[in-house]
């Protein structure tokens, strides 16, 4: 069944189309929920909420923009709601921002498995991890992240910068790199 047909059916309350929608997007949205909640059960809760909200508000989807993007946004919101994290306010010198954008990292990181990336990202503090995910992976702008997390735009920007600095630090850590090289080699 085509996506447009599924959306149309869901808008009309067709159960078959709703099931198709669940089938088509459940695994990808589960991955999104897992990334934010780090817990299988919490991720399931968030996923359920995602689909319930999607069916409830599908009439508001006008067809402009990616439908998957619309769903992912709901999934992110639901996941954040589930974990109910408090975000600290960070202040950072403007000069420090993006200081490491052009930093060199070992080439071995260009071919990392998903699990390894997750292990790496999990070493970030939670607030940095969430903002990194929202900005880098989901592609949200800072003003959107600020609204979603109820923080200021500058806080979002500063936290992302901290996350990047931390990641560069981790990546440049020789021990970690060596372990990864050994794993790739084996």
């Amino acid at each position: 069944m085509e996506l447009e047909e599924i959306i149309k059916g869901c808008k009309a309350g067709n159960e078959k189309c709703q099931f198709s929608l669940v089938q088509q997007f459940a695994t990808r949205l589960m991955a999104v929920c897992m990334r934010y909640t780090h817990d299988q059960e919490l991720a399931k809760d968030a996923l359920q909420e995602t689909f319930i909200n999607a069916f409830k508000y599908i009439q508001s989807y006008s067809g402009k923009g990616s439908f998957e993007g619309w769903l992912r946004r709901i999934a992110v919101n639901c996941s954040l709601k589930v974990i109910k994290t408090m975000y600290e306010v960070h202040t950072l010198e403007e000069a420090a921002i993006d200081a490491n954008s052009f930093a060199e990292v070992p080439d071995v990181y260009s071919s990392m498995a998903k699990e390894d990336i997750m292990l790496l990202l999990n070493r970030l503090p939670h607030s940095q991890y969430v903002i990194f995910n929202l900005n880098v992976i989901e592609g949200y702008h800072h003003h959107e992240i600020a609204t979603m997390l109820n923080i200021t735009e500058s806080t979002s920007r500063a936290t992302l910068c901290k996350a990047r600095n931390r990641l560069v630090e981790i990546l440049q850590n020789e021990n970690h790199t060596e372990r990864l090289i050994a794993k790739v080699g084996s």
Binding site: T27, E104, V105, K114
Partner: peptide, 19 residues
């Protein structure tokens, strides 16, 4: 490898991830 390229790798790897 520049850090920016690393971020692109992470993005493409996680964006299409499935659970």
């Amino acid at each position: 490898m520049k850090y920016r390229i690393f971020e692109q790798t992470v993005k493409s790897s996680l964006q299409n991830a499935e659970e």
